[in-house]
Design a binder for these strands. Structure first.
Length: 1154
RNA sequence: GGGCUUGUAGCUCAGGUGGUUAGAGCGCUACACUGAUAAUGUAGAGGUCCCUGGUUCGAGUCCAGGCAGGCCCA
């Protein structure tokens, strides 16, 4: 059977389409999994995309990376099942629906029911599924699309519930609070989106206080008490919200910020004090005049406060120091839990020296940073119990101080009730607090200050940062384990694992699960009104049982669920559900979304009604739960789960670090005490060619479908992988794909075309047995096969190390530089000349092995083209029942060849490199001497300083001669007496040996005479005197080379030097003419449209000089141009004229049919 | 503001553990070659290796501090 032949240029898009159709027809993807049944598995998790938007070119990138390693592992014989999935919940979908309906969150439950709203979300979320599936196929991403997991399915949600219950039972799920923007006037929390509405930030004038926190004198703080005197030390902290000061429980400093201790006086009580503040801010709080004013002259009421810096510290020196509570029990303020751990100086990475004092007052109930820093340092929040015994902050939800707050109890924090502020003696709470503190001597400075502050967009009243209820997963409880196990994960790039992810784990806070929204997995927790009793539901089964109890307690009227054939369905499905088209709606699936679950009420052990906590859970929980929920585990499929956990490999964008990567890891550690993935690649962004982010708005987004159609999936994938490492950002330029297509795929295609053209002419079909034995192969063949084995080792190593870029580059360099541009080019004559000899057979077999192996190696990256190449190369072989290794119908079903290391010959690879370099140098010399390659020359001269080089070059002499058209390579060694040696210092060695003396020694070496070089070579040492000192040089200290031959034109490349003998003899001249003639006749053949195998007869116009050349080289010419006859005639009419050198030759060419 | 990351020729990228004259491909210019031909060879032009300091005999490479871009988080 012939090898298929194709005409230039190959349509790569068509290759993609054709191969895809063939894959589908023959179920190749399915076979790539089923034929590996029983083999070790390679577990891959698909990070689910959301199908509510069209896929972009960056998805091609991300999915190419995933695909590469799954295909590679399949080639290694592993079984790789890849279950697809869809992420279906979340805010982006809600926002899209709201935009389409022209509504806001406010309208849900009013203009549209939750039921209808969620229905709309469900419809929207899969809108682009068909487009996604299409792209998946066309780009060649092999993933199981038929049985994907979908996060809105009841089974998936039920799994999430079961996992949540596991966490609940372990005590890892709790209700707490986070600090969120809150509008007391509206009684609601605000999202960051709402806070970003125009007009919410406004300038306001507030009372601000620099407060003095009195340091407790002990061992730790002793350094803050400069002497033995009794002057107290205070830490200064500035706040624009004085009403938060009674809730202060800590002070934060920056651990690297310099601080000073200043001796001065309080400007309200005139008492002598010491204060601590950031060095950089001293100028803001103290005047230049006070610097020199004598402390002892200070009188109460003086305008200028004298001050002295007594000491400086770093923030880290202050951490741990204790201070006295500003508003303590003695002043009528309440005690609180954990008080003994409060009132300490802690670290805060948000602290700056831009304003204030460089020390931040911390009230964990009224600031997100405060909350976080306090939690990390184990500083408690100031919480008080209300009338019902519930813990809460000192401000209630309407914006007033709670009753326990002593003299300030019941006061409004800001004017939320619209009370009259016009009275002459009206004081805001902030002002009252300031007055009180002035009297107490705890106010260092009180000022009005104008700044911007966020306001509620609905009520125009200032927003408070306020603790709001949330459900948390206590990830901090397993923090150490998370960090420990993370160290066992292979991150690509490593820095994402240690840096971005590792640092994030180091600063871990509990995972806030709550979302006050509608379209998502509901939190499966029911609670009694007073919060004293609650239950976490882990399955529909359990829920149904609880409902039955509630029905019995008459809290619910009926159970909406029932079990049919072991599956849970809606109880009313057969009665209420309208039937259409006579379809039997025997079962209607349970919907676990809102609002349905909100309508379920349960009964507590003590008979109280329990209501579902209305929150949804963070969608990241959905995706982090996929290793379990994709199998409906833990409710079933325990075995399947075990086989598929943890993942060997996952890959997503680097933006998923704190998203999917984290939630997978967190759940893996908490639920299974295991990593969830062993290898992870975080790929970078795909930018436009100018490095800008792609966006529809800018119109610079690249359409993946158009790209794949035009350039084919392989070139697109190859370009993306080869151009930059996946974790670097990629500047996507279509011109780059064109280049890859031309340079790599074009060359590979040409190489194949070349093979198929001649193999078909010879009727050659490769076999796997009876090949020419390796020992009988030519240098050239053994060389490329050695290179091929080296390539296999190299590429496998790169794939194993998750570095596809280096794999692609190695394959590309092999194909273009070694295989095509050296082996094939130098082998051309072997293919087109003569009968099918052993050498010709060897040429075919060698090239065949290279091409098939390349097809395998490139298959993970360029699956379509690799398939095309593999099938072209091996279909015939299988058809003739000849296959041993290549029995598989698809390259993706083969086992990747192992490198045959016995065939790696490093010496051979080395000398071929010498041949390549010598040829290049010779070409360069011809160029300089204006001697074209067709003109044969007698010899080149190569100086050699050792026998190894001579022997090495000698073995490739024939190749060099053929390539550069010379008759001989001659070696010049020392005995010739013509070599001129030069010497170069080996700086690396000399530097280590002589250090600072290197310069003079190096200079001396460069001045070495020929005799000195000779002495060094012969005796192995040379003593030289430099600046009065004697140094003994060793041969290793210098590099000896010969880069000049007097009287010759030479070219050098490092230690290699070549000279070209340009003497032309009459015979060489004639041969040159003969070659020119051959060349023109070949062109004429080609122009006349003759086939390669056609034989011809040639008649030339008689010319003496030409006849002499033909006399000498007639048989050579006839053989080259496949002429049966080559004659001269005095008169030629109607033919062409050949022109070359000084000749102008009429010629008549005819096809000889016999 | 913090963490991570990138910065080398017009463009895309290489440049183990420091070694003097920093490379490749593309693009550009010139010449050559032509039974692989939208290929190939040779030569040329093109660089403050982001900046500033430091360590060192010697820094693209190591250290510190900046600048600019990117991502994530506040």
């Amino acid at each position: 059977m012939n090898y298929p032949e194709y005409k230039q240029p190959l349509n790569y898009g068509q290759v993609g389409t054709d191969i895809l159709a063939w894959w589908k027809q023959n179920g190749i993807f399915e076979k790539s999994v089923s034929t590996r049944e029983g083999q070790p598995t390679f577990v891959f998790y698909e990070g689910p995309p959301s199908a509510n938007g069209a896929p972009g070119i960056h998805h091609v990138m991300a999915r190419t990376v995933k695909d590469i390693f799954c295909r590679y592992q399949t080639l290694l014989g592993k079984q790789v099942s890849r279950k697809g999935g869809w992420d279906t919940h979340g805010l982006p979908i809600e926002l899209q629906v709201e935009k389409e309906l022209g509504i806001t969150k406010e309208d849900i439950g009013k203009k549209i029911s939750i039921e209808d709203y969620n229905q709309r979300c469900r419809e929207t979320v899969m809108r682009f599924k068909a487009q996604w599936d299409d792209l998946t196929e066309k780009m060649g991403y092999w993933v199981d699309l038929d049985d994907p997991y979908i996060t809105f399915e009841p089974e998936y949600i039920e799994s999430c519930w079961a996992l949540l219950k596991k966490l609940y039972d372990k005590g890892l799920l709790y209700k707490g609070y986070t600090i969120q923007p809150y509008s007391p006037a509206a009684g609601t929390g605000l999202s960051s989106h709402e806070l970003n509405q125009p007009g919410t930030y406004r300038d306001v004038k507030d009372t601000t206080i620099v407060a003095q926190f009195k340091v407790k004198r002990d061992e730790k703080s002793e350094k803050l008490f400069a002497g033995a005197d009794e002057v107290p030390t205070y830490i200064l902290a500035w706040t624009t919200t004085p009403w938060t000061l009674p809730a202060n429980t800590g002070l934060a400093v920056g651990k690297n910020i310099p601080y000073v201790l200043v001796r001065t006086f309080n400007s309200y009580t005139y008492a002598p004090i010491r204060v601590v503040l950031a060095e950089a801010l001293v100028g803001k709080h103290f005047s230049e005049k006070g610097k020199d004013a004598p402390l002892e002259d200070y009188q109460a009421g003086d305008k200028v406060l004298p001050w002295r810096i007594e000491a400086t510290f770093k923030g880290s020196d202050l951490i741990g120091i204790s201070y006295e509570r500003l508003f303590g029990h003695d002043k009528g303020f309440p005690a609180f839990e954990g008080e003994e751990r409060a009132f300490r100086v802690i670290n805060g990475d948000f602290v700056t020296t831009e304003d204030g004092t460089g020390i931040v007052h911390i009230s964990p109930t009224f600031g997100a940073d405060d909350f976080r820093a306090a939690a990390l340092a184990d500083v408690p929040a100031l919480m008080v119990t209300d009338d019902e015994g519930k813990l809460g902050p000192i401000v209630d939800r309407t914006g007033r101080y709670v009753a326990q707050m002593g003299e300030f109890g019941g006061r409004w924090v800001k004017n939320y009730d619209g009370h009259d502020q016009s009275g002459a003696d009206y004081k805001t709470l902030d002002e009252s607090i300031a007055i009180r503190m002035k009297g107490d001597g705890t106010a260092f400075k009180v000022e009005k200050y104008e700044h911007t502050y966020p306001h509620c967009w609905r009520t125009d009243k200032p927003v408070l940062y306020y603790p709001l209820d949330s459900w948390f997963i206590k990830t901090t409880a397993v923090k150490d384990r998370l960090i420990e196990l993370n160290k066992t994960i292979n991150w690509k790039p490593e820095s994402t694992g240690t840096g971005r992810f590792g640092n994030w784990l180091e600063n871990l806070v509990d995972w806030n699960l709550s979302r006050s929204r509608y379209w998502g997995t509901p939190l499966p927790i029911w609670r009694s009104q007073d919060g004293s009793e609650e239950i976490c539901i882990g399955s529909i089964e359990q829920l149904s049982a609880e409902i039955d109890k509630a029905v019995a307690a008459e809290i619910m009227t009926h159970n909406p669920y029932r079990k049919v054939d072991g599956a849970w369905v809606m109880a009313d499905s057969s009665s209420d559900e309208p039937t259409t088209n006579n379809q039997q709606p025997a079962t209607k699936k349970i919907d676990l979304h809102r609002p349905y679950v909100d309508d379920i009420f349960l009964v507590s052990a003590t008979g109280q009604a329990m209501y579902r906590e209305t929150d949804l859970i963070d969608v990241w929980f959905d995706s982090g739960a996929m290793p379990y929920a994709q199998w409906h585990y833990p409710l079933e499929n325990g075995e399947k789960f075990k086989q598929n956990f943890p993942a060997d490999f996952i890959a997503e964008g680097v933006d998923q670090t704190r998203g999917w990567f984290f939630t997978l890891h967190a759940l893996g550690v908490m639920l299974e005490d295991s990593v969830a993935f062993k290898n992870v690649m975080a790929n970078g962004l795909v930018l436009d060619k100018n490095g800008n982010k792609m966006s529809k708005r800018l119109g610079n987004a690249v359409d993946p479908f158009a790209t794949i159609q035009q350039y084919g999936p392989d070139a697109t994938r190859w370009y993306m992988i080869a151009n930059a490492q996946p974790w670097d950002n990629l500047k996507f330029d279509l011109a780059g794909i064109t280049e890859v297509q031309r340079r790599f795929f074009g060359t590979l295609f040409n190489t194949y075309s070349f093979y198929s053209l001649y193999a078909n002419l010879d009727g050659f079909q490769a076999t796997e047995t009876g090949r020419v034995p390796h020992a009988e192969l030519s240098e050239l063949d053994r060389w490329i096969l050695s290179k091929l084995q080296s390539l296999i080792l190299e590429v496998r190593g790169y794939y194993d190390g998750y570095d596809p870029t280096k794999a692609a580059r190695a394959i590309q360099d092999f194909v273009t530089d070694q295989l095509s541009n050296w082996h094939v080019r130098l082998s051309r004559r072997r293919f087109w000349k003569g009968e099918l000899t052993q050498d010709k057979r060897a040429a075919y077999e060698t090239l065949q092995e290279c091409l098939v192996t390349v097809a395998q190696l490139m298959a993970p990256i360029a699956p379509f083209f690799a398939e095309w190449l593999y099938k072209n190369m091996t279909d015939g072989l299988r058809q003739e029942g000849n296959a041993q290794r290549w029995t598989a119908e698809s390259v993706h079903l083969t086992l990747l060849v192992d490198a045959d290391e016995a065939r790696i010959d490093k010496a051979l690879e080395e000398r071929m490199e010498l041949a390549q370099r010598i040829s290049s140098l010779t070409h360069s010399l011809r160029k300089k001497s204006v001697l074209k390659v067709r003109q044969p020359l007698q010899r080149i001269l190569v100086p050699v300083l050792n026998d190894t080089t001579r022997e090495q070059v000698g073995k490739v002499e024939d190749l060099i001669c053929a390539e550069v058209n010379v008759k001989h390579v001659e070696f010049l060694d020392d005995t010739s007496g013509v070599l001129v040696k030069s010497v170069k210092p080996n700086f690396k060695r000399l530097g280590q040996q002589y250090g600072p003396k290197l310069k003079v020694v190096g200079a001396r070496i460069q001045q070495m005479t020929a005799e000195e070089i000779s002495t060094l070579e012969k005796t192995g040492q040379l003593a030289v005197e430099i600046e009065g000192e004697t140094y003994t040089l060793a041969p290793d200290d210098v590099e000896i080379r010969t880069d000049d031959l007097p009287g010759w034109l030479v070219a050098t490349d490092g230690p290699l030097t070549v000279a070209l003998d340009v003497t032309l003899t009459e015979e060489l001249r004639q041969e040159g003419v003969a070659r020119e003639l051959v060349n023109r006749l070949q062109n004429l053949r080609k122009d006349s449209g003759l086939e390669v195998q056609d034989k011809i007869r040639v008649v030339l116009g008689a010319q003496p000089e030409l006849e002499a050349a033909v006399q000498s080289f007639g048989s050579y010419i006839r053989e080259e141009v496949q002429a049966l006859a080559l004659d001269f005639a005095p008169e030629i009419s109607g033919g062409s004229v050949l022109e070359f050198d000084d000749f102008s030759v009429p010629v008549q060419l005819s096809v000889a049919n016999a």
